[in-house]
Design a protein around this nucleic acid. Sequence first.
DNA 1: AGACGTAAGCGTACAGCATACGCTTACGAT
DNA 2: ATCGTAAGCGTATGCTGTACGCTTACGTCT
Lengths: 211, 211
Amino acid sequence: MPYAVNAMPRRRSLTPDQLAAAALAVIDRDGLAGLSMRAVAQEIGMSTMALYRYVDDRGELEQLVIELVLSTVDTGPPGTASSWYERIEVMVGRLRGVVGAHPWIVPLIIAHRHQSVAVLRWSETVVAILAEAGLDGRDRVVALRCLLAYVVGAIQLEHLGPLAGPGTQVIADRGEFPQLSETARQAGGVGPGEEFDGGLAMLLRGMANGR
Amino acid sequence: MPYAVNAMPRRRSLTPDQLAAAALAVIDRDGLAGLSMRAVAQEIGMSTMALYRYVDDRGELEQLVIELVLSTVDTGPPGTASSWYERIEVMVGRLRGVVGAHPWIVPLIIAHRHQSVAVLRWSETVVAILAEAGLDGRDRVVALRCLLAYVVGAIQLEHLGPLAGPGTQVIADRGEFPQLSETARQAGGVGPGEEFDGGLAMLLRGMANGR
DNA sequence: AGACGTAAGCGTACAGCATACGCTTACGAT
DNA sequence: ATCGTAAGCGTATGCTGTACGCTTACGTCT
């Protein structure tokens, strides 16, 4: 006679969420490169191999992490009061807010997104709004993927490059790239948030003026 | 008395380009995860440690690789006959063509882009076109970063997810996400090229209708 | 109360990783 | 012919993921 689910010989001392949270803590502290089974085990005070009672391999742990993060994205449709334009901004803003708080996980999202329910829920809501905006068929497909590409790309460019100054600035200021260094000079006054929102606004204007 | 440059006690048997080409071959064959000093050494028939006569560390090898790839991007301004709109399309298309042929290196580009002259050259030309289009100040900064974010994000979404079907399709078709699965169905008929170009077109329309 | 079976958790082992250090060796300059 | 130098290599160290088998806690059944 098989055991009941809650009558295991020894109860697990961890929930998958706790495990994922520990992994996320490691990532936030030491970056994606710092994520190792050993580091996570130490974080929760267990032996390395104990983790394998919870996940089959490192990949499954990564999946747990992105699901933990993405599940905190509010995927409910924003109030219908505002325009579709603003509602997309809200949806994208929510995603950026959550993911931008843990930028190291973006590569994990790209790798595991097809297994993520959270991404699907978010996409579902966004697609619905796009439909309301009058986009359908090809254009809607394109718009959705385009939004995702932008979010994913922008977050990485913002957070995952090494400090912007020493590299670009020095070379740019050598007078070899006049237009660029002029632009770079003005970039100083533009905060990351404004930059992101500005780009998103361009994108949305383009979607609105669909051909 | 120091030696002349070409009179070294033992001539290097490799050019940096050959080294980078070997690393790129490994990446193209086995992915970024397959890139290791050992693998590259084997590829060129040298010992692992011999590589360190050419680069300080793995990071420098990566930089060599992206510079090898990106240096093949034609950064010359496209013919002035066409509109700025079309010229940006050409510039973005060139970048996508080259990088899309080696999609695994995108994370390397993100990490090392600030040290890449090729990226600067490309940006310089793009900025010049944007200026002609009437964009300046804040808008030009935003537009450039936005284009880069899109390219980088789109290439990763296209190439770096695991096969699209089994994951998304199966879940989507469970009727839980009606809008999404409807959209996904139509996505089948849209090729990657069309999708990329479609998104870019939206972006450019938005830039044109600057507020 | 005591015995049993199961799964939790751990220790060890192994292959592969980047790379520090020091040795050998080829070879241009003298 | 000799010498100095840098090319190239071998070994060692401390990381990584994880396969395998042991110990141990504990719910269930007698």
